[in-house]
Structure formats: C-alpha cells, structure tokens
C-alpha cells in the first residue's frame, strides 16, 4: 500500500555487526523508519478508521474520513483499493506501534517466549475497538487481489514480534520460524472475532496454548485450516505457494 515500503530502505547499516551474521535484514529501528503514510493519507485513513465501528470497513467509512479531514467525497479516489486501504492502515500502524513500549532487549534472553506472548496479546487487544467488524477486514484481506499484501504484512508482523522479543540470537527454536508465528497469530486473531468472554480471556488462553504447543505442527494446521476454511480465502494455499511450511 501507499508508502508502506519494505523496511530494507531504512535498514540501519550498523545493526549488521561483522562478527555476527546479520539475520534480520528485514527489520529496521523505529526511529529510522520513514513514515509509512503521507500526511494527507494518514489524516483521511485515521479519520476513516474512527468510523469503522459504525460503518464497517466500507466505502462509507472512507468517505466520512475524507470529510472529517476537510476533503470531498470524490477525494477518496486517492485510495485505489478503497476500504482495503483502511484495513491496511490499521495493520501497518498497529504493527509499528508495538515498538513503542516493547520489552528492553537486555533482559530478554531467557524470556523470549513470554515476550512474544505479551507482544502478540498486545497486538490482538489493539483490535478490540473494531473486533465486531474484523470479519469484514478478513474478507478483504483474503480476496485474491489483496492476498499478497496481506501475507507480506502478516510476515512483517511476525518479524516484528520476534525482533522486539529479542530473539535475534536464537536460531534453533521453533518460534524463530516467522511463518509458524504468523500462523499462530492469524488463528488467534480469527478466534477473537467469535470470543464473547470478558476482556477476551479465551483468546488469551487460545494464544497461550498455541504458542506452548508450537512444535506440534498438527495443531497449527487445524488452526490455519479453520481460518482459511472460514474465510474461503485460500490462505493455506497462499502460504504454501510462498514456500511456508503448513
């Protein structure tokens, strides 16, 4: 989407310490990232997002956002992907927001699993205000035209979890597999759309359980199968075609 360039552009050269192989080329440090959206786009899309609870991820929300920002109905032509641009805006801004109060990397070495859990949970909770509309977002995310963008964003989110959790040095454990984490997160996100429990405790339990049984691939297949099946969006095929194990 708009200006959400892959992070390589902002890669901090000094993060590649010579003695260590630079494993996370895809990651960059927050203060060096270019703003992901141009100012006008940010203004319209953030305003649009505030109308999602009432209008859904729909053209009406986009138009209301444009009006709030002082633009015209017709100005929404700035967004060729229509309502999907609101979904993308939410995903990108919430991913970047994770870095704000991430665990400090010094004392994380032994606690990576717990850090990942915390980060994933925090990200899930960022969906609270729009959770009753999230299935609309999933429908847009899994349409063939948007699937490449969706999968890339999911992979970036996974990288972000791993990086912020301080897992840079861990190479052998299962969760360094970004795809595995992506799949767990995506299924938790789907689980949350039907979770009626107080403060989404069931989603939290679901997430905790999935992370704990991370190595048991069978469990993952179930989760993703349910997710993709429900959305009929072919996520599994999409991931497979990207060479991701499931």
């Amino acid at each position: 989407m708009v200006n959400s360039k892959p992070c390589h552009a902002a890669l901090k050269p000094s993060s590649c310490v010579r003695s260590k192989p630079c494993r996370r080329l895809y990651h960059s440090y927050e203060h060096e990232r270019p703003p992901p959206f141009a100012p006008t786009e940010s203004r319209i899309l953030s305003a649009a997002l505030s109308h999602v609870p009432t209008h859904g991820f729909a053209t009406a929300a986009l138009i209301q956002g444009a009006r709030d920002a002082g633009y015209l109905d017709v100005s929404t032509n700035l967004f060729p992907t229509g309502p999907f641009s609101i979904v993308n805006y939410h995903l990108v801004t919430q991913r970047l927001a994770l870095a704000k109060d991430a665990p400090s990397t010094n004392d994380t070495a032994n606690n990576i699993s717990e850090n990942i859990r915390t980060l994933a949970l925090r990200r899930l909770h960022a969906n609270k205000p729009i959770i009753h509309r999230w299935q609309e977002a999933l429908a847009l995310l899994t349409t063939p035209a948007h699937l490449p963008t969706s999968l890339r964003e999911l992979a970036l989110l996974s990288d972000e979890f791993l990086f912020l959790a301080g897992s840079t040095d861990v190479t052998s454990t299962w969760y360094t597999n970004r795809a595995g984490l992506a799949v767990i997160y995506a299924s938790a996100e789907l689980y949350m759309t039907t979770d009626m429990s107080k403060d989404f405790v069931e989603t939290e339990e679901f997430l905790t359980r999935r992370l704990a049984e991370g190595e048991k691939v069978k469990g993952l297949v179930g989760g993703v199968g349910a997710w993709a099946g429900m959305q009929a969006g072919g996520l599994v095929d999409g991931l497979r075609s990207k060479g991701i194990w499931i």
Binding site: H55, T59, A60, I63, Q64, R67, L72, D73, V74, T76, N77, P80
Partner: peptide, 18 residues
C-alpha cells in the same frame, strides 16, 4: 472507478451536509 455522485449512506448524515 470514479464513483461520481454523493454517496447514499453518508449524504443523510447530519455531521456534514455535502
């Protein structure tokens, strides 16, 4: 793709009269 005309669901909203 241009979608000319005022959008129906929003033109009835009091928030702004286009």
């Amino acid at each position: 793709s241009l979608n000319p005309g005022l959008h129906p669901t929003t033109s009835s909203l009091p928030s702004s009269k286009p």
